[in-house]
């Protein structure tokens, strides 16, 4: 469980996040949705501590992350896995070396145990034959899957994904979404996903935070999203003709 209390963040004059409070639950895929530029990435990076918030609190279960010293933060970081927007695989390392990397840095495993863990994680994301290839040699969808494998290598309690299916075709995007959801359930992780993709919202939106211009504008789940009176959310959800048509047929 991750709890945010009154998060504020600005860059100079620009107020990016304004008084955001919410609770993200374990074992669920929690989504942060909103238009491009609405502050999703800034919020996610603030939660994981890549950016410092101006005011407010972030709790990892009951641990106050905001006021934690560097050493304790580092310990919590070992419980986090993150899938970045572009995958962010290390391009000087092969697929299997990428997944092995966190194990090399932080585990006390023997080489054999590491090997086993790497194959397990790659199997889990359905990467079969690309172990020796480099990130530049595999497709975008495979890169995302390898990034997921790397993120779960150390069995994290918290998983973060920034637009995990941006740049993917709709079929691959849904496969990635479902994979993230399955893994979340399997390990009872607290998973937070940034997205602006309505397919993801419908597919895995167990808990949704909608931010509009840096403000929390709505909170709920995918079943409730069609019936909302919230104007900003309606504009966001029914931006495409496809969804407008679906709504008119309902």
């Amino acid at each position: 469980m991750i709890t945010l209390k009154n998060i504020n963040k600005s860059f100079g004059e620009l107020d990016v996040l304004n008084d955001i409070s919410i609770q993200f639950e374990a074992g669920k895929t929690n989504l942060i949705i909103g238009q491009s530029g609405s502050g999703k990435t800034v919020l996610l990076k603030s939660i994981i501590g890549l950016l410092d918030v101006d005011t407010g609190y972030i709790y990892y279960d009951d641990r106050d992350f905001t006021n934690m010293n560097f050493k304790d933060k580092k310990e919590i970081r070992k419980e986090m896995g993150m899938v970045f927007q572009g995958g962010a695989l290390f391009d000087s390392l092969s697929v299997e070396e990428n997944v092995k990397f966190p194990l090399d840095m932080f585990s006390a495993m023997s080489e054999d145990e590491k090997k086993e863990r790497v194959s397990f994680c790659l199997d889990r994301v359905d990467i079969k034959k690309a172990h020796k290839l480099y990130p530049a040699e595999i497709s975008g969808g495979m890169q995302k899957r390898v990034a997921i494998a790397r993120a779960i290598a150390l069995n994290p309690r918290y998983l973060f994904c920034d637009e995990p299916n941006s740049g993917l075709d709709p079929v691959t995007a849904i496969v990635i979404d479902q994979l993230i959801q399955e893994i979340t359930k399997e390990y009872n992780m607290t998973t937070i996903i940034n997205t602006h993709d309505m397919n993801s919202v419908m597919e895995i939106g167990e808990k949704i935070l909608f931010i509009n211009k840096g403000v929390k504008a709505w909170e709920g789940c995918s079943d409730e999203i069609f019936d909302t009176e919230n104007q900003a959310l309606n504009n966001f959800v029914f931006a495409s003709n496809l969804f407008k048509k679906i709504k008119s047929k309902l």
């Binding site: 990076k45 994981i48 890549l50 933060k73 580092k74 310990e75 970081r77 070992k78 986090m80 993150m82 970045f84 927007q85 572009g86 962010a88 695989l89 290390f90 391009d91 966190p102 840095m105 932080f106 973060f160």
Partner: peptide
């Protein structure tokens, strides 16, 4: 290029 492709962020989030 490691910075702009977020590879540096990926290291930081691991606590490195």
């Amino acid at each position: 290029s490691m910075r702009v492709t977020e590879q540096i962020d990926a290291l930081e989030i691991m606590g490195i």
